[in-house]
Design a protein around this nucleic acid. Structure first.
Lengths: 142, 142
DNA sequence: GTTTAATGTAATTATATCGGTTACAGTTAA
DNA sequence: TTAACTGTAACCGATATAATTACATTAAAC
């Protein structure tokens, strides 16, 4: 998983809270990154129908969904990322030794299980949940 | 998480199955990587007391633990890795906006939860489990 | 229609990480 | 004393990630 997921979630939470259209420049300033990166990532959210956008004067990005209905699992799917994924594989399926030929498959299975578990957990967190967490009254310090 | 974890688990499973001392070169061949990398990673396993080693002629690495008692959680701790961890943080705690200043903390919390959940699951998988999975009779193909 | 301000998108650059390689000092046993 | 191995550092190259720059496209205002 890369920070694209963080940028995507942060942008959505920001758009949801402001309740108005925002330019990539305004979002980039809030997220602390550059506008082109924001545009590239928000384009994925748009293609997944999580937001809409408009070019031209007074254009920008709009979030018009129910924040209680959009989960972090949806956002992750939109940016096409996995939580647990390792490219490198050990051994070689062509080798005679059953350890050498089988370990990659076993590890893949383990990582797939972990990944699915993480995704299931992300499905239970909504954009609204995060807004509430950021703006709850009870920010007891001690 | 990096492939060091894979190399560590593969090496342990291989050592456990062979039931004899093996050199970094033999392990590297089975894992399909280079001996120096194997030595660097197995050194961490040694420091975590999961294996022992001996230099000199007929030296090598030894696994003398109960394979039912060594879990993937132990291996992960030995190589000092997290499952879910993203370095990049959005926003800036010094900014006035509560979204900009709070999102990094919220995301950290989410990732920590996922990471802990993955580690808990890895604690339920032992080296013996993997050996059984690799060498079980019932490898039914259809 | 022209200007202005924004998105969509590609190309490039900078940097960090990761795995591979080489080298060699230290260790152990024949 | 030699041979074989671990311990460990230094370095290299590839890959991936984020930042930057640029520009065509789109939409609204004038």
């Amino acid at each position: 998983m890369t920070a694209e997921f963080i940028v995507a979630v942060h942008s959505l939470v920001f758009l949801n809270h402001k309740k108005c259209s925002l330019s990539s420049e305004m979002i980039a300033e809030n997220v602390c990154t550059n506008p082109a990166r924001v545009r590239k990532i928000l384009l994925k959210l748009k293609k997944a129908d999580l937001i809409s956008s408009k070019g031209g004067t007074d254009g920008g990005y709009f979030f018009e969904k129910d924040p209680k209905a959009v989960t972090l699992r949806d956002v992750l799917a939109a940016v096409e990322l996995d939580v647990v994924k390792i490219k490198w594989r050990s051994g070689d399926t062509d080798m005679d030794c059953e350890v050498a030929s089988g370990m990659a498959g076993v590890m893949d299975g383990i990582f797939n299980t972990l990944d699915a578990s993480c995704k299931a957990q992300l499905a239970s967190i909504t954009i609204d949940d995060i807004d509430k967490q950021l703006f709850k009254e009870n920010k007891n310090e001690l």
